[in-house]
Design a protein around this nucleic acid. Structure first.
Length: 306
DNA sequence: AATTGACACAACCGCGATGGT
DNA sequence: CACCATCGCGGTTGTGTCAAT
């Protein structure tokens, strides 16, 4: 069969420097198109698809090769993923020198890391049984500052706790918040990233606005006991500036750079509820991929009837 | 020193969209 | 309008590296 013979000539796997050179020469002469002709002309034993991918992901000019995502790039990815979903090419178009593959790999590795962190920390252990105990709904939520606002049009997913720098005493997160940690546990924190998704399906405002107006605490938000979830990773926090009577310390700059401080014990997450107040998981939400027991530590919010 | 796990990165595959005939 | 080739995108898998044990 002719097709079989042709397929047997197709080379797969890593590209050699010689192949790259041939491909670059081809693009220089013909532009980034007509990929299939590379194989049909016998220039390379690669499919057009493979050639295009190699060019787009590795050989194209002005690519950022071998350089990790900066904190700013991470923030942009998180924001745009929340807005566009898994439209990696669209997201990549907002990041100079990054490809859709870069963004996709970045996101999936971050997602795996978070899932792993959650699945491990949400499992009660014998070591710290009390700290790992899921908070029961008998505990009233602390009163939150009344001047907090949420951009209603925002569909932003914000990243909490991804460090842009580490010292022996603290973590500087991507949004500028400073979290004090137990030095012996900092590596555990550095492996953790938190994403919080705003459920509002409406289009987000322009990036420049939404970056500075990360969602805070309207009445449809809930709290995750941060200390419980991170029991194995965190033993103490400092830098809190809001203290509630039931032991929760808050400082909302944890959710954005415009306010001050950090959230020391709890994480506030926006949620959706049905008409009778039951928690609805966002069907397209990032949390859907988490172990189901992650949500066990969510407290029911007071409804408008309360 | 060997093993293991996590991670980043590269590449492939399947599928839908698009454009030409 | 149908068919086909090509392109582009998103999901997935494979592989190398490095740190921890």
């Amino acid at each position: 069969m002719r097709s079989c013979r042709r397929e047997s000539r197709v080379r797969k796997g890593p590209w050699s420097a010689e192949e790259d050179e041939v491909l670059i020469n081809f693009v220089n002469q013909n532009g980034p198109r007509g990929w299939s002709s590379i194989q049909s002309k016998g220039l390379l034993p690669r499919t057009g698809k493979s050639c295009r991918l190699r060019w787009v992901n590795k050989l194209r000019p002005n690519l950022k090769v071998g350089c990790k995502f900066s904190a700013e790039e991470e923030r942009i990815v998180v924001e745009l993923q929340a807005r566009f979903g898994n439209k990696w090419a669209t997201i990549a178009s907002h990041l100079s020198g990054r490809t859709d593959n870069d963004v996709k790999n970045f996101w999936s590795s971050r997602k795996k890391r978070l899932a792993r962190t959650l699945s491990s920390t949400s499992q009660p252990t014998n070591k710290h049984p009390c700290r790992n105990q899921i908070k029961q709904n008998s505990t009233p939520l602390p009163q939150l500052p009344s001047n907090l606002e949420v951009p209603e049009s925002s569909n932003s997913m914000i990243q909490v706790g991804a460090p842009s720098s580490l010292t022996s005493e603290s973590i500087q997160t991507v949004n500028g918040s400073l979290i004090s940690t137990n030095p012996s546990k900092k590596s555990a924190i550095s492996e953790s990233s938190w994403f919080i998704q705003h459920p509002n399906p409406n289009p987000a405002p322009a990036l420049s606005e939404s970056y500075n107006t990360l969602p805070l605490l309207p009445d449809h938000h809930q709290m995750i006991d941060f200390e419980s979830v991170f029991a194995e990773s965190i033993t103490s926090f400092s830098q809190s500036s809001f203290h509630s009577t039931n032991g929760y310390d808050f400082d909302m700059s944890f959710f954005g750079g415009s306010l001050e401080g950090s959230c020391s014990k709890s994480v506030v997450v926006p949620v959706q509820r049905d008409p009778v107040g039951n928690l609805i998981n966002n069907p397209d939400g990032f949390f859907d991929d988490f172990p189901t027991d992650v949500f066990d530590c969510l407290d029911p919010l007071p409804t408008s009837l309360d």
